[in-house]
Design a protein around this nucleic acid. Structure first.
Lengths: 351, 351
DNA sequence: TGTTAGCACTCTATCTCAGAGAGTGCTAAC
DNA sequence: GTTAGCACTCTCTGAGATAGAGTGCTAACA
């Protein structure tokens, strides 16, 4: 299996892939000779295609059908062959305009982002919300709701507001609560949630001048509630699942069902995406995906940032026969616009 | 079209409907005679069925097929024929147990509710979140985040916590903010959001002892932000959309596509449900639904309450050939469990 | 008068089979 | 190294033909 391809083979592989992505039909030597002006006869192309199949870049659905790119073929196409371009300023403006309407609230902003991905790519769109783990405490406020119920409001630098009601055994006075708020604010500010280990709190606790049993309890409950939070803070938003019905590869209900199942399981979608927070942008083709069920799909992702720190991922999911050349710039462009908007929000709230 | 049916006709309509719901196949006279011990020959049953078709309770897919209930038939079945039972104490316990794990947070509670509906009915499950409109202010807290950004936290008696960041032109001091908080708390407590009209705020405003220009602005921004909120406060949670793929009536992609589309549009789902907040429990069959696309579906809903006040709706959506006898008690039972849990949460936070 | 058996008829679903179409691999010529 | 020609393979489609299910109608029966 030689991985070195001469120029003509590259050209043919590119043309086959382009054509297959556009048409969905296996492409034959004759079609290529007619449709693309390569100056080659069908017979020559046939020979080259046989070679490409030999080296694993193309496949034949059955003996007398045309050729189709293999996963390896797609990989090579994405890495080396396809036209790579970025969105134009104007296109970015449009996305910006669409999203800017929702800058009031981070959750709708993210929601809207997935909708835009769907609209522009015609594939289901995914957004992994900013990870609480990497977020940095900015403000914590304790509000007394009733004798023993207090509301904890945490604001992070990523603009997220988290609420949690917690219950104490004893009553705590508003004054005490305020003092606790102040103390926690001083101590936690600029810590990331990741840093927030039990021992940080322990430190805090031991430093308390007026530590009494009540405070101990309050802090213990708080720790517990926050570490609960960590587990489930990140959400995956998905929109446009209905779009996969448009894909001819999923006309078959037997294939469709498990896929639809996955798209409903936030957990699995999370696993699909969370590793890509660190990757700038990534295309995962077929078996490169860990989840068995989507091994005839591809996932195109790009991470987005807040103030220069990668915090989340957006992406789309489609069949391996995905229009990578169209989708990749859209995903990347949308991620960059989202980054900009989130950074603005973050800055807005800076002290 | 006589609506009066004699007992034998009722019995046959019931048996036909039961059988069709269970099998999905049009049921013929012979099948009934064999499968159910009515003491009637196929020929007699044929005659009765012809009558039932005449009066619009049954339909024939084509001449030489068995009979199928018409929408009118289903309606009669649901109203008068089907076995009506409630969930047993034990079944309610199970639901309670499942949901109680999530009582910490109202949103996950509601989310989980829709999952339970899916699991128990095998149809997509819907939950319309408690309506902010009918909620009652319990606490409002203004937190200063930066010079001009303040975070507004509103807690309602339904246990919901709403956050909104607002931006002022001028800086406001923490002290002033606290005074405003106190004032708003006094004035708004026990008002429903619905009551919150502009004039309430205007009253508030004119009563201010220390009204200065800054307060005016703060209040104006607050009004705006709250009325924005009202529009989008209610959310519809849907789970288990993949379940409709299991329904043989949607094997046809042409039928499936528009339906999947609807299930993704929160707006349309909202319209589907919001009227049922006042109805205790309801079955809407086929064309009884307003949305054209789901006119070959049925929706079974039940409203849930917080402290005796109906605030939201849960339900499932399935083909008109839905197992009403099984689904209705599940939906009603789940709604009652949810009501109980929400009321507990609400009580917990009472001052 | 209501019920039932018998029978011809209708409609659908499924299976088979042949032919068309597309594309390949191989061979031989350029 | 490239190309034309050709036999071969495989799929897809449509046309019958057939089996099966169920009906409606008629006539007989209690």
């Amino acid at each position: 299996m030689a991985s070195k391809l001469d120029d003509r083979k590259k050209q043919i592989l590119k043309v086959v892939t382009d054509d297959y992505i556009a048409s969905g039909e296996p492409v034959g030597s004759r079609t290529i000779a007619r449709r693309y002006d390569l100056g080659l006869s069908p017979a020559t192309i046939r020979n080259e295609m046989a070679d490409l199949e030999e080296s694993g870049f193309l496949e034949q659905p059955h003996t007398s059908a045309g050729r189709v790119p293999s996963e390896r073929g797609y990989r090579y196409y994405v890495d080396a062959l396809m036209a790579r371009k970025s969105l134009s300023e104007k296109e970015l403006e449009v996305i910006y305009g669409e999203l800017d309407q929702y800058h009031e609230e981070i959750e709708s902003l993210i929601h809207q982002t997935s909708k835009i991905l769907v609209q522009m790519t015609q594939y289901p769109g995914l957004v992994l919300s900013p990870q609480l783990q990497t977020a940095i405490f900015k403000h914590i406020q304790l509000v007394k709701l009733s004798k023993s119920t207090i509301l904890v409001v945490i604001v992070t630098d990523t603009g997220f507001v988290e609420n949690k009601m917690i219950e104490l055994q004893q009553e705590i006075s508003s004054d005490e609560l305020d003092r606790l708020s102040v103390l926690l604010n001083q101590r936690l500010r600029d810590l990331s949630v990741r840093d927030l280990q039990l021992n940080h709190f322990m430190d805090l606790n031991s430093e308390l001048v007026f530590h009494d049993q009540l405070f101990n309890e309050a802090i213990k409950v708080l720790i517990k509630s926050l570490s609960d939070r960590n587990k489930n803070g990140e959400r995956v938003y998905i929109e446009g699942t209905a779009k996969i019905l448009e894909q001819q590869e999923f006309l078959d209900l037997q294939k469709l069902k498990p896929l639809m199942g996955v798209l409903e399981e936030e957990n699995r979608l999370y696993k699909l995406l969370y590793k890509d927070v660190i990757a700038k942008s990534k295309v995962k083709i077929g078996h490169e995906n860990e989840d068995q069920v989507i091994q005839d799909c591809s996932v195109v992702t790009a991470s987005y940032e807040i103030a220069g720190r990668a915090v989340g991922v957006i992406g789309v999911l489609g069949p391996t026969r995905m229009d990578y050349a169209k989708v990749l710039p859209i995903v990347e462009g949308t991620a960059s616009v989202l980054s900009e908007l989130l950074s603005q929000i973050s800055k807005r709230g800076k002290l």
